[in-house]
Amino acid sequence: MANRNFHVHLVSDSTGETVSSVARACLVQYEGVFVQEHVWSLVRTKGQMEKVMQAVERDRGPVLYTLVDPELRDCVRDHCRRLQLPCVGVLDQVMSVLAVHFHSKSEQWPGRQHQLDDGYFDRIDAMHYTLAHDDGQSTHDLDDADVVLVGPSRTSKTPTCVYLANRGVRAANIPLVPSVPPPPELEAATRPLVVGLITDPERLVQIRVNRLRLLQQDTETEYTDMEQVQREIQDARRLYARRQWATIDVTRRSIEETAAAILQMLNVRRERRLQAGEASTP
């Protein structure tokens, strides 16, 4: 049953991000199965849909879609029924449940989640801030951040910050360098949530060695010395405990999982502040 090859068609009237994310979250659960994904985005006319269905007939496989136009949805279903292929609207059940609960019919607006609203411009602003405050840059306005990530080199600070910025979070990061104290602006900052990142020393050495090899640099340095790296992690732990910063071990976490934990911390922090504000209101 191993090493089987399949085709899956992902059809969307928008960017295709939603249906692709759902498909990959499901497909990763199947080992020994190779799936070629065919992503068909911005499909908004019957002519475009006809071309998509010709490809489906050529490379037969299940069709997953996110389409709001009833005619296009019917077109997909009719073709798949004729071809005897499974066809799933990944948001259909959710939309049906919400429509019943809200006693309201949804608007037929393709790509509405990507509209240029205030949230979109908040994400752009967050991305600009994050890029300007990467790797300890521009610490003078660190107090304007929502989150500051602190950690030794190669603990995924930058990619996690970029992921958070894409969610509208202004994220800065400060590297911990041996024998160099963190910038005073970090200690003075009161607004942002400060999160310390740690990882397993062995894994960190491995990551650093691979990085140096990619750069064609010497891998036998203090930067990759096991004893030195162990001291870095111990010093980081002591710093986090002394400052009472939240700590996340990223050893077995993906960037998305680390970011999700930080977003949860932000939500808890926000709720506590709201409750404190309501409690102080006469």
Rank of each mutant, 00 (worst) to 15 (best):
M1C: 10
A2K: 14
F6I: 09
V8Q: 07
V8A: 11
L10K: 08
S12I: 04
T15P: 01
V19P: 10
V19S: 10
S20K: 10
A25F: 14
L27C: 09
Q29I: 06
E31Y: 09
L42C: 13
R44M: 05
T45D: 10
Q48P: 04
D59W: 08
R60H: 05
T66L: 02
D69F: 09
L72C: 11
D74H: 12
V76E: 06
V76Q: 04
D78L: 08
R81K: 12
R82L: 09
L83D: 06
V88C: 09
G89C: 00
V90H: 12
V94W: 02
L98A: 15
F102A: 15
K105G: 11
S106R: 13
R112E: 10
A126N: 06
H128P: 00
L131G: 03
A132S: 14
G136C: 01
G136N: 02
H140T: 13
L142C: 05
A145R: 00
V147L: 07
V148N: 00
V150W: 00
G151T: 06
S156G: 03
S156T: 05
P159C: 01
C161G: 05
V162K: 01
V162H: 00
Y163G: 03
R167Q: 15
V169D: 06
P175Q: 02
P182D: 00
P182F: 00
E185I: 00
V195K: 07
D200P: 09
E202D: 15
N210H: 15
D218V: 06
T219H: 06
T219A: 09
Y223D: 08
T224K: 07
Q228M: 12
V229K: 11
D235M: 06
R238P: 00
L239P: 03
R242H: 14
I248D: 01
T251G: 01
I255G: 12
E271A: 13
R272E: 14
A279C: 04
T281M: 07
